[in-house]
Design a protein around this nucleic acid. Structure first.
Lengths: 174, 174
DNA sequence: CAAGTACTGGATAAATCGATCCATTTATCC
DNA sequence: GGATAAATGGATCGATTTATCCAGTACTTG
């Protein structure tokens, strides 16, 4: 036979399944959003809640469960991006540089882990397109949707204070 | 003064901007989608296009510009997930295990880099919520949107053959 | 000004991802 | 059955991300 059996029968799939169990499955832990982005968002929203005064890194770390020394790096990035303002010495700490209603989730994300839109073909064939580009338009559509959604979401909308209900928090998986 | 100046004046922002230039900016390269996911999608669509017969790894590598040895790992993962069927030896190669119209982008993504929805509070406070959970609902909404979009997009929709126009490819950035 | 506080930033280590090499296994062709 | 072809899987390596430590700097208080 020189014709390839393209669609394997069910029985072959079963054999494949066994092999999945027997070999170390190549599994990635990577989430869609980076750990750093998660940390930056937690910290920013934490600052948006305690809007009274500056919070020290140790306080933010305790409230958000972000490793303190790593949080320092994240806050530095947010400071350099102009999203938070840092103050040293006694009674120092971090505070938002703008009102929470004027800082979007996208602002925070872009400060630490920029959401890169797909503008050129990753295959690097500029003049003549390749066969893959419907894919990249689809992927970039998804990026655009997220970008729009996150650009409209401000930090104050993420705080408890933005609603009458006091505990609308994380639902349990059920 | 024991009251923190929360909203720094413009002049301070300028000073901050200077510091951005002078220090090594903490910049991440990570895109929203992993390199492996990109490779897996390219390879899958490549197989969907050449739907005639099996393609060897070297051929797929040449067509998709994925490093050949790494592509082998990606294809192994797709094989174990039952998305592609592999055949060894002369005239061997890879082919889709199902018709391209029955394989979604989400299927491919989940095979190599699962899109993990947020079902529980990452802060690990199950009973009593934390102050951060509006955020995670927002993030998970984004994940849900992407998941839905990618579940509906099949590989054959990503091929050139799915349209009358022959070159609707990657637009140049302009 | 002296002491103490808290952010800053450099150096470093651990973990994961991306990439490569090569021996082995399985299939086809003659 | 032997030679060849091509995927498989183990080992390794470099780059990036995540995490930690600590000396230095700037700011406040008294």
């Amino acid at each position: 036979m020189d014709r390839f059996i393209q669609y394997l029968p069910i029985i072959s799939a079963c054999i494949l399944d066994v092999k999945i169990q027997n070999s170390k499955f190549w599994k990635k832990e990577q989430a869609l959003f980076s750990q750093t982005a998660e940390y930056a968002l937690r910290a920013s929203i934490c600052l948006a809640q305690g809007a009274g005064g500056p919070m020290r890194a140790a306080e933010i770390s305790a409230a958000t469960k972000v490793p303190q020394d790593y949080l320092a790096k994240v806050l530095q990035a947010l400071t350099r991006a102009g999203i938070v303002a840092a103050r040293r010495g006694t009674n120092g700490g971090y505070a938002l540089a703008r009102p929470a209603g004027q800082v979007s989730i996208l602002d925070v994300l872009n400060a630490v882990d920029p959401l890169k839109r797909i503008t050129t073909c990753p295959l690097g064939l500029p003049a003549h397109g390749t066969k893959l580009c419907r894919l990249h338009r689809k992927l970039d559509d998804a990026l655009a949707t997220i970008e729009r959604s996150f650009a409209e979401a401000t930090l104050d909308q993420m705080t408890d204070a933005s609603s009458g209900t006091s505990k609308p928090l994380c639902p349990t998986p059920g």
